[in-house]
Design a protein around this nucleic acid. Structure first.
Lengths: 305, 305
DNA sequence: GGGTGTCAATAGTCATTGGCTATCGAAAAT
DNA sequence: ATTTTCGATAGCCAATGACTATTGACACCC
């Protein structure tokens, strides 16, 4: 059973003439003749009654030809699907972004990516790095935006930008006296951290020497999101460290909150996009990376490609 | 595009494992591997994302696999149609019978043929020989029962039986005095004939010498069917000649009508079945001929095969 | 009634295809 | 580090499907 054979059947059924049908199929008359004879003896059925006058369909041939036409129709639809699926920038991209980046990156990223790839809708998810990583490996997500380092077998990454950290302090806090902070200024301060699971928490801990010692985070207060931390700081519960892109998205004139940058080279993290090495639409990843480059959060530091 | 390839796609989509899928398709793993790679590069699409962990369908692959399944489904239905159409004694036989035979043959033929080929319904038509011949040539009928000779290009015939003629006379007609008639007894009698178009009319004319002379049928009265002729004879309008199978189907004790046979060898006609030489179900014709042999009209003379 | 033309079937040849075995290479698991 | 797993590759071969040239059957026509 071959689709070519079915095409022969259908064409001959229409033309009722071997020569013309062969021409329509772009084959020679003997080819058509032999092919149909083969089909008939494979089925054990005569599909066409040949007399010198003309070629007629038998009743069973009529049924077969009709059904063959249906098969060809469906296979044509298949080819159409394949044709339309050819463009890698068509079809959804399932993107995961960690909690501490999503709210500050996506508002600028989405329109930028939409401009580059209007037929690639985003299916978005915000979550912790570990959850995103699992889903990426399982093929439930196509790409995730996380903090470097992100090393997993079968997963490759590309840098997006560097994101400096900044301190937020309640108005009147002693450290607000300094325009620029040094990392060691933090030592001994009452530091608010994100809850466990947020990779940003670990990055802050790494960046602040005293916190990485055993028991260093004991007694530290925790917030469940950067927004919670911001409000806790504003209410005087202590100071905190946040990505500067988050801080700059907040109202600059907040009377209760002061922002201080660190002296260079201050603490920062690198934001990367990760995807399966086997992901078949690298062009979609490229588009994403370029869209991010065009839509960098305020104060992010571009990475040279 | 091959149905085999589609089968590969569908199976791999189900198994998500080249080795197992290959086994299910009864081919080697490299065969499957190569075939799918070929399909993918022909389409210009990646259907399956292979990682060392497992094989996953891409979104477009999902669509393709679903459509491929539909194609295979339709092609399976095609094969099913072919399988069922294999028996030549299944499916209708379009049979034509001339007016002067149908009413006397069919009542016995139909049950006989039904017993031999219960799944071959008869599509029946009664008509003149010429009409039946046209439809047979055009493929609108599969077989026709007519009187010999019936010679047409591309048409072959087989004898069914010989049918003697008999005379019917109104009671009291002088010829009723004889038990057996000689053909020359008819000369000068007032003979009722069938209307033009009925081949039986021509056969009677041929059988009766004086009628075939120019102007021999002038003044002969005509009836439109054997039944009409019968009633015309019964009402005293003249005598007639009919096939004995017709006469014997009539009530034997009809007081108004007398039946007389001819002395051997009397006039008769041979009844044959005709079909296109290219008709693809000769077994159906065989069944028909055997059914006729089993259901000969009364007084018909069987023909040795 | 013997050419003539038409049309499908057959013969013979050849390139392509689709399948196999054996082996490789990458990645995980032990 | 070694072994195992699994898909990809290489190389080979038989089967397939297409071609050209020709035959055979059948109407048609002068």
């Amino acid at each position: 059973m071959t689709l070519t054979e079915l095409r022969y059947i259908v064409t001959l059924a229409r033309e009722r003439h071997f020569g013309r049908a062969a021409e329509k199929c772009h084959v020679s008359q003997p080819t058509l003749s032999v092919a149909l004879k083969k089909v008939e003896q494979r089925f054990g059925i005569t599909l066409f009654e040949r007399s010198s006058a003309d070629v007629r369909l038998t009743p069973i041939g009529e049924q077969i030809a009709a059904q063959a036409e249906r098969v060809l129709e469906e296979s044509a639809r298949l080819q159409e699907i394949a044709r339309q699926g050819k463009n890698p920038l068509v079809g959804p991209l399932r993107l995961g972004v960690i909690f501490t980046i999503a709210p500050y990156l996506l508002p600028r990223l989405i329109p930028s990516l939409h401009a580059r790839a209007p037929d690639m809708p985003l299916h978005l998810q915000e979550n912790f790095t570990v959850r995103l990583g699992e889903q990426l490996r399982r093929g439930e997500l196509d790409a995730i935006v996380v903090a470097d380092p992100f090393v997993e077998p079968g997963i490759v990454t590309g840098a997006l930008y560097d994101e400096p950290f900044a301190a937020i302090l309640p108005s009147g806090h002693p450290l607000t006296a300094k325009e620029i902070l040094a990392p060691r200024d933090i030592v001994g301060e009452n530091l608010l951290l994100l809850g466990p699971g947020n990779c940003f928490r670990d990055q802050v801990v790494q960046a602040c020497p005293q916190l990485s010692e055993p028991g260093g985070t004991e007694g530290a207060r925790e917030g469940s999101s950067l927004e919670t931390v911001r409000h806790m700081v504003a209410s005087g519960a202590g100071m905190s460290i946040v990505p500067i892109s988050a801080a700059l998205s907040w109202p600059a004139q907040d009377e209760l909150l002061q922002l201080r940058r660190f002296s260079e080279p201050g603490p920062q993290r690198r934001v990367v996009v990760a995807w399966r090495a086997s992901f078949p639409r690298p062009q979609a990843i490229d588009a994403l990376r370029q869209a991010v480059a065009d839509a960098l959060p305020a104060s992010a530091v571009p990475v040279r490609r």
